[in-house]
């Protein structure tokens, strides 16, 4: 079974070395690719020095475009699973083998690492937790599925979802929307408790100022994803 880890990275030179070292130590059965999203620092050089496979995007596409690049890579190289893992050191690589086992046992299309099942580790700031709560409620309303951590960037996708995401993936703030798209396609999504950390370096792409826009945009996009074209397509067998 071929497993890929997609690491979207934008100006993560300070933290990426630790992420790669952790992956090699705690998830040796996983290949990984760093998608350098037009960084202006030495992210790409650091990764190459460490012998990592790097996809250098010539311009900054944003998280959605960077992650989709990883899914396209996974599809073209025949990977069975693709796991999105942030380049800022928030996600523990040690969770990957358990997520893979969960994907297999549950016969799921996606396993999402959730901070809020056992409520251990970094739980995000209170205002964001309110937003995440609302998005979980919105997912429940739109799809009937209960998910606790809809904004989690730690997620493992099956081959069927790799194909779907390589074809079409939301652009900005993609996590909640991609979950609704996957559910609308008939994918089975399960959550697994994962203890996350606060970012080791760099800044989050979502500032407090952008939060309101984020909520409005994401909520509307999720509703569109549920009721528009994705519903008709269905996942490949």
């Amino acid at each position: 079974m071929k497993n890929l880890v997609i690491i979207p990275a934008w100006n993560e030179a300070e933290s990426i070395e630790g992420v790669i070292a952790e992956l090699r130590r705690d998830a040796p059965g996983f290949d990984f690719v760093v998608v350098n999203d037009g960084s202006t620092d030495s992210t790409s050089n650091v990764c190459r020095r460490l012998g990592a496979t790097v996809l250098d995007l010539p311009v900054n596409l944003g998280i959605g475009g960077a992650v989709q690049t990883g899914y396209i890579y996974a599809l073209r190289h025949g990977y069975d699973t693709a796991t999105q893992l942030d380049g800022d050191g928030q996600h523990p690589a040690s969770a990957l083998p358990a997520m893979l086992e969960c994907l297999r046992v549950e016969d799921a299309d996606m396993v999402v690492g959730s901070r809020f099942i056992e409520k251990k580790g970094f739980q995000s700031v209170p205002l964001r937790r309110v937003g995440i709560c609302f998005l979980s409620f919105w997912v429940k309303v739109l799809t009937g599925t209960t998910l606790t951590d809809t904004t989690s960037g730690l997620r493992m996708a099956s081959r069927r979802l790799i194909r779907a995401f390589a074809e079409e993936y939301p652009n900005d703030y993609p996590e909640p929307e991609s979950v609704v798209r996957a559910l609308s396609l008939g994918a089975k999504i399960v959550e697994m408790s994962v203890e996350m950390r606060s970012r080791s370096a760099g800044q989050s792409s979502i500032s407090m100022r952008k939060s309101l826009y984020y909520m409005v945009k994401v909520s509307a996009a999720m509703a569109m994803a549920r009721f528009y074209n994705w519903k008709k397509k269905g996942l490949d067998k």
Binding site: L57, P58, L61, T69, I72, Y73
Partner: peptide, 17 residues
């Protein structure tokens, strides 16, 4: 155009790799 630029950037990254 945004979608086209995104696809172009992704293909460029793939081919470069």
């Amino acid at each position: 155009l945004q979608a086209q630029v995104q696809r172009l950037a992704q293909e460029t990254a793939m081919r470069h790799e």
